[in-house]
Computed example of a mutant assay.
Amino acid sequence: MDAGDWVSIGSGGVALLAAAFAFWQAKTATKSANHAGRQAQAAEDQLSIARDQVQQAERVHREQLALAERVHRERNEPYVVVDIGPDQPGSSLLVLSIHNIGPTMARDVRIQVTPALESSHASLTPRLANAVSRTIPMLPPNRRLVYAFDGPQRWGGDLPMRYDFTVEAHGPQGAVETLTYTVDLETLAGYLVGERPLKRIEEHVGKIGGHLDALADAYEKANSEAIRAHRQRMSEQMRQGTDDHTGL
């Protein structure tokens, strides 16, 4: 082979080496690109997870804030309760009561009842209808409106024994949640015969008697000398009167 052939062989070898090097570089670049792609995807996944965590934290914060606001509002809202029950423990008189047990003023109180209120006393029925049909302009905290409803004869007739009351009202922050109460008069049947009507009066009289006895004992102890002297004077006066009568 002459010099030209060797040059050709050398040039071919160099070209082959250059091609092999270019292939290695391309393969390395491809691996680097794949690795960079995986890193980019991992970074994107981490970013997505972080975004979800932030959104969840914001959602939890909003829910907690809404719950705190609701609790604060409910603690400062009026609560109007409608009920039917004995006027006093042991009393046979049933009354309809409208009571604001909340801490704030109730305004524009509206009551709906199903079925319509009826009493065995015909004169009470229109009064009861008027009590629940009109709008109550205001009901201060702990204010209780009471209306005569019925008596023990309620259980001897065919009048309704179950009523559903719906109450709407406004508080300091606007309309409050609509409340619904169910009153079942059958649950009171046994209660009304369980206590003497005058039992509470008897208990109060007994307490007053006990207080008077204690007061008398305390007074006698504090003024024992004066009481003894007074009794001695009375005894002497009685003895002198007896002596004078005997001398006559």
Rank of each mutant, 00 (worst) to 15 (best):
V183K: 11
R200T: 12
R144L: 10
H204K: 13
G151A: 12
I208L: 15
P197R: 01
V176E: 05
G171L: 02
E195N: 11
V132P: 08
W155G: 02
Y191C: 04
L185V: 01
I136A: 01
E177W: 08
R200S: 14
D150F: 08
P152T: 01
D184L: 02
T166I: 03
L145H: 06
R196I: 00
E177A: 12
N142E: 13
D158R: 09
D150N: 07
V193N: 01
V205E: 03
N142D: 14
R143F: 13
Q173K: 15
L185I: 03
K199H: 15
A148K: 08
V193L: 00
E202W: 07
L159K: 07
T166S: 03
R154D: 04
W155C: 02
R196Q: 11
S133Y: 05
L185W: 06
R143H: 15
R134P: 03
A175T: 10
I136M: 03
P172T: 05
R162W: 00
E186I: 06
T180N: 11
Y163D: 06
T135P: 08
A148F: 12
G194D: 07
T178H: 03
N130D: 15
E168L: 10
T187Y: 00
L198M: 14
A129T: 15
G194V: 00
E195D: 10
Y147T: 02
A169V: 04
M138W: 14
E168R: 13
R154T: 04
D158P: 06
I201T: 09
G174D: 09
F165D: 05
F149Y: 14
E177V: 09
R144D: 11
W155R: 02
V205T: 06
L188I: 00
M138V: 14
R144M: 12
T182E: 15
P172E: 04
T135A: 08
R134D: 09
